[in-house]
């Protein structure tokens, strides 16, 4: 038990990532309301971003800006002192794509509401079968 606790603390981000991903997946599958489904999709996307940022994080490292960079690179930068910036750049693109997906999904929800006057998936399905 005493050996288990440091392992859980060291991997705290990954436990939270698993929990958030399961919350998002549950909302996308089990919720009947379309806006709730979209909120679940956004939570799933931020969970994936959390996973990637956790990969790049380091202990005792600073943000990835080279100290004394204005001196023309007279000495080499040690990579262990800086957080890995590659996952950050990838996830900047992922955030912008997430907002674009969200905008399209909400526009579709508004069109569905104008057509069927409801946001519940089961009511929309019964109306589709009545027609």
């Amino acid at each position: 038990m005493t050996e288990l606790l440091p392992i859980v603390i060291a991997k705290l981000n990954y436990w939270a990532y698993i929990a958030l991903m399961m919350i998002g997946l549950y909302a996308m599958i089990a919720k009947k309301n379309l806006v709730k489904k979209i909120i679940g999709m956004s939570i799933l996307q931020t969970a994936v971003i959390l996973f990637f940022i956790s990969i790049g994080a380091k202990k005792d490292a600073t943000i990835p800006i080279i100290v004394h960079g204005h001196e023309g690179g007279s000495h080499a930068a040690r990579a262990a002192e800086y957080i890995n910036p590659l996952p950050h750049v990838l996830m900047l693109t992922a955030i912008v794509v997430a907002v674009a997906t969200l905008g399209v999904a909400l526009a579709l929800v508004i069109k569905i509401y104008q057509q069927y006057q409801t946001l519940e998936e089961d009511e929309i399905l019964t109306r589709l079968q009545d027609e």
């Binding site: 971003i49 750049v89 996830m91 955030i95 912008v96 907002v99 969200l102 905008g103 909400l106």
Partner: peptide, 24 residues
């Protein structure tokens, strides 16, 4: 976690624009 660029993109785009879209 030291990802400041991701943090301010999330604050403006994720929290700002997403909330406005949801409320609209």
């Amino acid at each position: 976690m030291g990802a400041v660029d991701v943090a301010f993109t999330e604050a403006s785009v994720g929290a700002g624009v997403s909330t406005v879209l949801f409320v609209a």
